[in-house]
Nucleic acid binder design. Structure first.
Lengths: 148, 148
DNA sequence: TTATATAGCACTATATCAGTGCGTTTTATC
DNA sequence: GATAAAACGCACTGATATAGTGCTATATAA
């Protein structure tokens, strides 16, 4: 299914708020007062992002989370990768099977390589958008890109 | 989850075979003799693609499926759209809620527009690869595209 | 000491997906 | 005609992943 999980959506929303309040530690409570998002779930997501090193945490009263790096250097792709793994697109991608789950078609699959190309292009899209870009919305939707 | 469904994978595999045997009606049996794919499931997928007008069917002995249009004019995006709907990426995209499922965050969502841009770019990727491209694998993986 | 945070882990309910069962209808061939 | 091979239609089951919550421990400012 070509859809981000709710966890990822909430993660991006939370992170965009951290960008707005750059430097300061922001509590989950504050985020949930600003956006109608389920508190506990957002908390779980931020914990994950903390384990992955995208944010830093501070415990206790007045604690919270803050970006561990400048917003420019954290991409949407990094966030997606941290929360749901690098997008695979297909189940038959070489090197993705450290243990099990090798696609039956693997050896003779006629679409493995083309799909892999799409995957790389898609990943590149995600990597080219940073949290900074997420916040400073450009005026208009861009169109087109280099042809495949 | 950023992954195509098995149905879509099987659909693309089947269609790529139809490209190889262009013009002729190909049975599901033949497809399954060539690729290790579950027959019944592939049959269901081809039925769907037939309803959506991407392939034509012929019943009875010697029957089967054939592309209803030239391979150049059927894109991977069209196939994906037919089998799993246009990718949404996020749950908060305007115009996607003819009835229900409006994202709680909708009105105040800080990431709706950026995600929408990604979605459009991604969709464009899929639309730029045709079944023909799928079959005539280019030599090398392309890199980069226009920046966002 | 208390209130407010994060940390960690497990659990349930729900939705989606992969795959199959089973009977019907169509059509080429013998 | 009879037969075999094929698509058609629809519903069903099991597996997997996701959304969201329960509960407890730990840290820290006031």
């Amino acid at each position: 299914m070509l859809q981000l999980t709710k966890r990822t959506e909430y993660g991006l929303i939370a992170l965009s708020h951290l960008v707005d309040r750059r430097g300061e530690f922001v509590s989950v409570r504050e985020i949930c007062e600003r956006f109608p998002v389920p508190r506990r779930l957002v908390a779980e997501v931020l914990k994950d992002l903390c384990r992955k090193g995208l944010v830093e945490s501070q415990r206790g009263a007045t604690g919270g989370y803050a970006l561990s790096r400048p917003a420019e250097s954290i991409t949407v792709g990094t966030v997606v990768g941290a929360l749901e793994g690098e997008p695979r697109l297909a189940s038959c991608h070489v090197g993705d099977h450290p243990a099990g789950d090798p696609c039956d078609v693997a050896g003779v699959c006629p679409i493995r390589d083309p799909i892999l190309r799409l995957r790389i292009e898609f990943w590149s899209l995600l990597e080219r958008m940073s949290l900074r870009d997420l916040v400073r919305e450009p005026a208009r939707l861009p169109v087109g890109a280099a042809p495949l």
